[in-house]
Write a protein that binds this DNA or RNA. Structure first.
Length: 421
RNA sequence: GUGGGCAUAGCUCAAUUGGUUAGAGCGCCAGAUUGUGGCUCUGGAGGUUGUGGGUUCAAUUCCCAUUGCUCACCCCA
């Protein structure tokens, strides 16, 4: 029989690793909630149309990376490749805007993209993200960026780089695109085939190309930051002012173009050199037009997402997991035979009911092997149950740290451990 | 979709210019005073060398194919 293996680009989270996720998730939740964000959970699959309309048909994510299938009713469904579109769908559908003010939402969960795998890039991966819905203010952008940076810092990460740009809005971006096309048109032949295709579909993406000749052609290209209209320019300047006042270093990158169509004005990305080629830990931006595109009332919003697996890689490589691994059991109960197990079983169950983490031998190994097991589990105490103990109703508790032994009456066992705590 | 690298025990890796029963460390199991862990010592289990073909007296080693993993392009988290 051939064993069945997991699907490429997915991974098992084994018990030895799970606590690291718990740790990351606890920090994420705490930081989000402290900043006033509330969790939202949406379905893992949605109607395909949601992502096509929200993210943009021409983006790589939608055109070639979605896990799309039809269900038995012949409806086209897609495993979510990101969550902003889902959250906005839910926001509209559940009239969250009716609650007034801004809605501050966060999420954490699995996303799916049918890409080729490499370091930091999986087919099922996890994102933590936040969405601040309903504010056009630069303060909102700044708040979002700050939450992302401060959270990464709270894990102990340093040497992260924040890249910032403005991609304009529906008024100035089309103008800039034409200026850009005018620049590239005479040099079109020098660009790589992919960028030649981008010339018509999305010329701004040429700026992002890593191809050396494309980079050199792009080097002198007009910058969006020189062609923002007044509203975008003012907004951008204000975001920079907020960040400067908060002592957040950033680097303006006029070539930062993110791959999702819905961004307007602010776009940002946090990168780290420890990640290999996929160096973005997280990114985000403002999306003032998205809700309208999805059929809601025009609502300016801003958000980010970070990749949890990438964060995990960083924490591993910089050795930032403090020893948060779970403690061993309070007590390991060793037995000689099934009859001893039968006798002590109710005691073990009562200890657990009292909140004392108790393990009992289940495969009938020798006492020596059970001691080794208790040691491996990092049990604080061990007690051995044999005929003597059952006859006298008194057990000897061995403290594993120093080997000292204490006699305890069986009826006082629970109290003994409660006093320790 | 395209390229490079790798594939030997549960894990990390050895195996001389192709040469005989493919090894080690860790882990696992058992023992070293009859009912007591860590350290030490002894023994044991565990491999169709990813799979299929080819060259050869002989292949873990060379060649071809295939699958998987990995890194990279692209794009993103």
């Amino acid at each position: 029989m051939e064993p069945i293996k997991n699907i490429k680009g997915t991974q098992d989270l084994l018990p030895q690793q799970a606590w690291k996720w718990h740790y990351i998730e606890s920090v994420i939740r705490k930081m989000s909630e402290t900043a006033g964000y509330r969790e939202i959970r949406t379905p893992i699959f949605e109607s395909t149309q949601l992502f096509k309309r929200g993210i943009g048909e021409l983006t790589d994510v939608v055109s070639k990376e979605m896990y799309t299938f039809t269900d038995r009713g012949n409806t086209s469904l897609t495993l979510r490749p990101e969550m902003t579109a889902s959250v906005m769908r839910s926001w509209i559908q559940n009239s969250l805007g009716q609650e007034g003010g801004v809605q501050k939402l966060y999420y954490a969960g699995p996303m799916f993209r049918a890409e080729n795998v490499q370091k930091g890039r999986l087919r099922q991966f996890h994102q933590w993200g936040i969405e601040l819905v309903g504010s056009p203010a630069a303060a909102a952008d700044a708040e979002v960026i700050l939450l992302m940076i401060r959270t990464l810092e709270s894990f102990g990460l340093t040497n992260l780089k924040l890249k910032l740009n403005s991609v304009g809005d529906e008024n100035c971006r089309p103008v800039y695109r034409e200026i850009l096309k005018d620049y590239f048109r005479p040099r079109l032949a020098e660009l790589c085939p992919v960028c030649q295709g981008r010339f018509d579909s999305n010329p701004m993406r040429i700026l992002d190309c890593k191809n050396e000749t494309c980079k050199s052609v792009s080097a002198e290209a007009p910058k969006i930051t020189d062609h923002l209209n007044e509203a975008c320019q003012t907004h951008f300047d204000l975001v920079k002012t907020f960040l400067t006042k908060a002592n957040i270093p950033f680097e303006i990158d006029p070539f930062l173009v993110r791959g999702l169509d819905y961004y307007t004005k602010t776009a940002f990305e946090v990168i780290s050199t420890d990640l290999g080629s996929q160096n973005a830990v997280g990114g985000g931006g403002r999306y003032d037009l998205l809700i309208e595109q999805l059929g809601g009332k025009p609502t300016p919003s801003v958000g980010f997402a970070i990749g949890i697996e990438r964060l995990l890689i960083l924490l591993e490589e910089r050795n930032l997991f403090k020893d948060l691994s779970p403690k061993g059991p309070d007590l390991f109960v060793a037995t000689f035979s099934e009859s001893h197990q039968t006798a002590i079983f109710p005691v073990v169950q009562n200890l657990r009911l009292a909140g004392i983490r108790t393990e009992m031998e289940l495969i009938g190994r020798s006492i020596k092997a059970q001691m080794r097991e208790a040691d491996r589990l990092k049990a604080a105490y061990v007690l051995v149950v044999g005929d003597q103990e059952l006859e006298t109703q008194t057990v000897t508790l061995k403290k594993m740290a120093d080997g000292s032994q204490t006699p305890v009456n069986l009826s006082e066992l629970t109290d003994f451990f409660k006093r320790l705590a």
